[in-house]
Design a protein around this nucleic acid. Structure first.
Lengths: 231, 231
DNA sequence: ACCTGAACACCGTTCAAGT
DNA sequence: ACCTGAACACCGTTCAAGT
């Protein structure tokens, strides 16, 4: 009731969660809202804008709102009192927390994965997430000239990992050899040398954490080669 | 003429290149083929299978066919004679070559970016690409237990980078501050500390190369910590 | 100001026929 | 064996009315 647009977006998100993105049509959303399809247009604009709005609706929950207009009250997932200037946690923890939250959102709403790569990250909410990553990288000692690129690389890994999980690119783990009769083993020498590893099932939580650890290692290496001062 | 299915897929790819993925309907493809929509079904199966087939059609050009059934003739982009066991190039060059080829495919066919994350990489062609990456990482000295994870991370970065470029996630480079009146600068401390960097336009070719260099550095670090023996 | 109803130009897919 | 035509149950969006 406070905002009709937000109500519509919430209903569309719920519909996508229940029946997939393909089930989200203007007509289906309108029916759930209890209105004619055309009544959505003043609030939503178009089907494409509906999808953008759904993504924004999720992103609003990724990074808690800043203490800008209201007071610092109603804190987020944080575990203590809200420090005035932030930066009480080490940079690698802040970076990891954002990454884990992003992955959790995509796991909870798999349909979002296919939208994330298609729109620039310029909504207020995603800009806030990018800002937190900038600050973490600067605090790690990464030179300013490399921070935007490194932020894009980190967020690409995190979003790409979650999208691959949710979308199925990482597959079911079954052995690809023999799927189409690929002839003698010599055709896939790399797979042959890894036969033992490829039979093991994959723990995706552990793999995500290992990726985060490697990325933190890379960030440290880049910071160190710039000189311990932080430049 | 040699294969009706391949002819249909080629026409669908050309249609997507010219008018976008949204213009690829069974009806539109059928019209270009010169046939009724229903005549596609025996060759294609369904709309979803058409999209899968289009992606496979592109992937067939990513990695040249192996010397399996035919002879080693009709070599690919390689610059010399085809060695019997491969591995004449250093691993980092082989890795970079695959990455650049993948990015080139996505830039040439931007619509493919949105499909790549949604299907497991188990077609013969993509398995061949994965195999080449496995071999490169093993030759770099990465322990076998870490190779599959690292391959997934590398391909996620490469595909995610290309998808972000093609889909618009990396945006146009305009300053996000002020896009929605985000209040005083204090709300975005990270951006404030990077003001000088964020005004510069981005050279995406250079950024891709810098990412590849950083990833190679990470691969070396992982190989080194496992012991110079390799495994 | 806010919503409805009818209409237009599309979809993917099924099914029964045609040659 | 290969293709067609009509039909079904959908789409997003425009436009002219209604209250």
């Amino acid at each position: 009731m406070p905002d009709k647009r937000a109500e519509i977006l919430g209903i569309a998100v719920a519909l996508a969660d229940e029946r997939g993105l393909a089930a989200v049509s203007m007509r289906a959303v309108a029916e759930r809202v209890g209105v004619t399809p055309m009544a959505l247009y003043p609030y939503i604009g178009s089907k494409a804008a509906l999808l953008d709005g759904m993504l924004g609706h999720l992103l609003g929950r990724l990074i808690p709102a800043p203490s800008g207009t209201g007071r610092g009250a109603g804190g987020p997932v944080s575990d203590g009192e809200t420090a005035a200037e932030g930066a009480e946690e080490p940079w690698s923890d802040r970076l990891g927390a954002i990454a884990r939250r992003a992955r959790a959102v995509v796991i909870a709403h798999p349909w979002a994965a296919s939208l994330v790569f298609a729109r620039p990250a310029v909504t207020p909410d995603s800009v806030r997430a990018v800002d937190a990553l900038y600050a973490a990288l600067l605090d790690a000692g990464v030179p300013a000239a490399e921070v935007p690129r490194l932020e894009r690389m980190l967020s690409t890994v995190v979003i790409g990992f979650a999208a691959s999980e949710a979308g199925g690119r990482f597959g079911t783990g079954d052995d690809p050899r023999g799927e189409r009769g690929l002839g003698p083993d010599g055709a896939l020498p790399g797979h042959a040398r890894l036969a033992a590893e490829l039979d093991r099932p994959v723990d995706w939580d552990a793999e995500f954490e290992a990726d985060l650890a490697d990325l933190a290692l890379l960030v440290e290496t880049i910071a160190r080669r710039a000189g311990p001062g932080g430049a």
